[in-house]
C-alpha cells in the first residue's frame, strides 16, 4: 500500500513539474545555477573517476588478454568501447547519485522542514516549478556533458596507464579505439546519461520535497535518495542495454 502511495506521489510530482515547464520565468535563474552545480562543479570528480576507471580497465584487459595471437591494439578497442557504451555513464551516474542526489535531497529536505517551501507557496509561487523543475532540467541537460567528460577521461586514463606500464603504446591504443568506434555507441551513452540524470534528480527531488521530521528526517531522505538513485540507475542501465543494444 505504502509503495503505491509513494509511486503515486512521485508521479504527481513529475506531472506537476512537467505541467509547470512553461513557467520559464520562475525557474530560469535557478536553472542556470543548477546547471553549474550539477554539471560544472561535478566535472572534477567524474574526470578523476574516468581516468582511474580507464587506467584500471587497460591494465586488467591486458592481464586477461595473454594470447600472443591477439594484437595489443585490441586493448584500446575494448577499453574505449567499454567506456563509451557502459562505464562512462554508469560510473559517472553512481558517483553523481552520491554527489548530486545527496545535495538535492538535503537542500529540498531542509527547505521543507524549515517551512521555506511553505513560505514559497504562501507567496504565490509554484514551488515545484521553482525548485524541482530546474533541478530536473539541469540534470537532463548536464549529464550528457558529464558523460563526454568521463568517457574522454577514461580513454586518456587508458592511454596513460598503457604507456606508463609499458603494456601498449599510445599509437596501438588509438589504432584499436578508432577501428572499433561506432557513432551508435556514443548515441547510446548519451541516451543512458539523460536517463540517469532524470532518475537521480527526480528521485532526489521527490525524497527531499516530501521530507519530514526535522534533521533526522532530512538525513533519512538523503540516504534514501542516494541509495534509491543507485538502484534505479543499475535497473535503468540493464533495461536500456537490453532494449537498445
Amino acid at each position: 500500500m505504502l509503495l503505491f502511495l509513494e509511486i503515486g506521489r512521485y508521479c504527481r510530482l513529475l506531472y506537476d513539474a512537467l505541467r509547470s515547464c512553461t513557467e520559464f520565468h520562475t525557474y530560469r535563474q535557478n536553472l542556470m545555477s543548477e546547471m553549474v552545480k550539477t554539471g560544472i562543479d561535478s566535472l572534477g570528480i567524474v574526470i578523476l573517476s574516468g581516468l582511474f576507471t580507464g587506467g584500471v580497465l587497460t591494465i586488467q584487459t591486458s592481464y586477461q588478454l595473454t594470447s600472443p595471437l591477439v594484437d595489443r591494439s585490441a586493448i584500446g578497442a575494448i577499453v574505449s568501447q567499454s567506456m563509451l557504451i557502459a562505464l562512462a555513464g554508469l560510473v559517472s551516474g553512481l558517483v553523481l547519485a552520491g554527489r548530486v542526489g545527496a545535495r538535492i535531497a538535503t537542500e529540498l529536505g531542509t527547505m521543507r522542514v524549515s517551512e521555506q517551501i511553505d513560505a514559497l507557496e504562501s507567496m504565490g509561487f509554484n514551488s515545484v516549478s521553482f525548485l524541482v523543475m530546474p533541478r530536473m532540467l539541469g540534470g537532463i541537460l548536464m549529464f550528457p556533458i558529464i558523460y563526454f567528460a568521463t568517457s574522454t577521461a577514461g580513454i586518456i586514463g587508458g592511454v596513460l596507464a598503457g604507456s606508463a606500464t609499458g603494456l601498449l603504446t599510445m599509437a596501438q591504443f588509438m589504432e584499436g579505439a578508432r577501428a572499433f568506434f561506432f557513432p551508435w555507441d556514443v548515441a547510446f551513452g548519451i541516451i543512458k546519461s539523460v536517463a540517469f540524470g532524470f532518475v537521480i534528480t527526480t528521485v532526489s527531488s521527490y525524497k527531499g520535497y516530501y521530507a519530514s521530521g526535522g534533521a533526522e528526517g532530512v538525513g533519512k531522505a538523503t540516504t534514501q535518495a542516494t541509495v534509491l538513485s543507485c538502484i534505479y540507475i543499475l535497473l535503468a542501465d540493464f533495461v536500456l542495454t537490453a532494449i537498445l543494444l
Binding site: E115, Q116, D118, A119, F125
Partner: peptide, 23 residues
C-alpha cells in the same frame, strides 16, 4: 484552480514560526 489559488495566496503575508527565511 491552482493559478487562481496562487493569486489569492498573494493577498496573504505569513510570518512562519522560525521565520522561514531563504538561507
Amino acid at each position: 484552480n491552482y493559478v487562481d489559488m496562487r493569486l489569492v495566496r498573494q493577498k496573504f503575508g505569513v510570518l512562519f514560526q522560525g521565520g522561514a527565511l531563504f538561507d
